[in-house]
């Protein structure tokens, strides 16, 4: 896969000596959606700000399409569009004017057709002559996306695009992001909504305390890190686990009717057959058996706990 952004040994230390990014290495591939997942203050926005030139780099290298963001900042920045976390606008400006301004600010010739198509794609064309202040929150967010895409960038940074957005608008935003990816734009998404990362991203990077703790394809990550739980429903109350079952590290459910057994589905031997045989020997009568897969949220919590 073609690398579009290459980050090497990136460090960012603020004036108060707070280390915001600590030796970050990351390659972002063309056409993918990569989610930067991390709690508040993890360094997600700082990373984006460093790539886009909004904050200065302490040390390390960042290249966008092969252009160094410091030495060849003009070429590098032409490739980038950014949608900030906050809804930041000149409130009395018309939608069409602010989008045209962004395009020209990035050195592009005016292109009415492109802007018209862009606004139509984002369902903003009807609102083009309205002042931004009069728009709803969701519309404002879309105007920010339109501004970021106005100069036809190859890479789009979306910093918490659905923060504070209601469920319906969030789904709407997810569709928009997917459509953008289909049109060939590489998307870097920061979020602390696990569901968003799980649904949208091709790859997920978990970031905490300025370090990338883990980066992998979403499916690999879930496969690699996931645990399954076997829930064994019995027809009698279980107060104590039989000694013979001690080696399986079973748990008793709250209603004391089920036994729970964690196992890794990727291992050759899960221990399920042996467990069920041992349970049979103890005389416990089984009613039902079911499995539960851990989701990305549980994996995320696990990773942060181990950090």
């Amino acid at each position: 896969m073609q690398t579009i952004i290459e980050i090497k040994n990136l460090r960012k230390i603020y004036k108060d000596n707070k280390v915001a990014l600590d030796d970050v290495n990351l390659n972002i591939f063309k056409g993918e959606i990569i989610a930067l997942l991390g709690p508040n203050g993890a360094g997600k926005t700082t990373l984006i700000s460093n790539i886009c030139g909004i904050s200065s780099i302490t040390s390390g290298d960042i290249k966008v399409k092969g252009f160094d963001v410091v030495e060849n900042y003009r070429e590098a920045r032409k490739c980038i569009g950014i949608v900030p976390q906050e809804l930041s606008f000149e409130p009395f400006e018309k939608v069409i004017n602010t989008v045209n301004f962004s395009r020209q600010l990035f050195g592009k010739k005016p292109n009415e057709k492109y802007i018209e198509n862009l606004l139509k794609k984002l369902s903003l064309w009807e609102k083009k002559d309205q002042i931004i202040r009069s728009l709803s929150g969701g519309m404002k967010r879309r105007v920010l996306i339109a501004k970021a895409l106005s100069h036809e960038p190859d890479v789009l940074f979306l910093d918490e695009p659905t923060a504070g957005v209601d469920v319906e608008l969030r789904k709407d935003m997810w569709n928009t992001i997917k459509n953008l990816q289909n049109s060939g734009v590489t998307i870097i998404l920061t979020t602390h909504y696990i569901e968003e990362a799980e649904l949208m991203a091709n790859r997920i990077a978990v970031i905490n305390n300025g370090k990338i703790l883990l980066i992998d394809k979403k499916d690999n990550l879930i496969d690699r890190m996931s645990k399954k739980t076997l829930i064994i429903h019995t027809n009698s109350k279980i107060n104590k686990i039989d000694k013979a079952l001690g080696k399986f590290k079973l748990r008793i459910s709250k209603d004391k009717k089920n036994l729970e057994y964690d196992y890794s589905p990727n291992k050759k031997k899960t221990g399920i057959t042996t467990l069920l045989n041992e349970i049979k020997k103890t005389g416990i009568e089984l009613i039902d058996v079911q499995t539960k897969q851990s989701n990305l949220e549980q994996i995320f919590v696990e990773i942060l706990k181990n950090d």
């Binding site: 909004i54 950014i82 930041s88 000149e90 600010l105």
Partner: peptide, 11 residues
């Protein structure tokens, strides 16, 4: 207004 991000990230 917080819109300096656009100026700073422009080429």
């Amino acid at each position: 207004l917080g819109t300096t991000y656009e100026i700073l990230s422009a080429p």
